[in-house]
Simulated scan of single mutants.
Amino acid sequence: MEQLVDTVIEDERWEAFGLPALATRAAEATFAHLGVHGVTLALMGCDDAEIAELNAQFRQKGTPTNVLSWPSEDRAAGEPGGLPDLSGGDDDDPDELGDIAIAWETCMAEAADQGKAPQDHVTHLIVHGILHLLGYDHIEDADAELMEATETRILAAMGLSDPYA
């Protein structure tokens, strides 16, 4: 099987932080919790300047953000609060879920502001991004409740506290 997460480091601070291992651990926990198999994704660790450009290009918001995701296909549920399509490929021919970008300065500032360990906060954001690739969203209240509850359960299984508490 291909590697689960193809991590691209655009900002060297992510390498020293251990982003590739953290991303793999987060992906393994997310997929195990949801029973998803036969998938891969790409994750780029960048800085605020790069994510601001991406945010402007894809969301018409020219400011930095913590994490962005680009699903390869629409897996969303047909109704608010419904489960998305969690089918995958197989281990010999995995489906590519899409891409995630995560920004160094914003993530570190948020962790400090919230009094969280940076590794825990980044793990949460990676799980959050993966759930977006899988069709979860938080625009409608019912979808937000489902997504947040799913994130909380995945993080708890990893030994991490509720990020929304």
Rank of each mutant, 00 (worst) to 15 (best):
L4I: 09
D6Q: 12
T7L: 04
T7I: 07
I9M: 06
I9R: 10
E10R: 14
E15V: 00
F17A: 03
G18H: 06
L19F: 09
L19M: 07
A23L: 01
T24Y: 00
R25H: 12
A27H: 02
E28H: 12
E28F: 00
V36A: 04
V36M: 02
L41E: 08
A42H: 15
A42N: 13
M44I: 09
D47L: 01
D47K: 11
D47F: 01
D48Q: 05
E50H: 14
E50T: 15
I51L: 11
A52C: 08
L54Y: 07
A56D: 15
Q57D: 09
R59Q: 05
K61Q: 12
K61T: 12
G62H: 05
L68Q: 06
P71V: 07
P80V: 02
G81K: 09
L83V: 10
P84K: 00
P84N: 01
D91Q: 12
L97M: 07
D99L: 12
D99T: 05
D99Y: 11
I100L: 10
A103F: 05
W104D: 04
T106N: 03
C107S: 15
C107I: 12
A109V: 14
Q114S: 14
G115S: 08
K116V: 13
A117H: 15
Q119P: 14
D120H: 11
H124Y: 15
I130N: 02
L134C: 05
G135N: 03
D143R: 00
L146T: 07
E148S: 12
T152P: 12
T152F: 10
R153G: 07
A157M: 05
A157Q: 11
M158R: 02
D162V: 13
P163W: 08
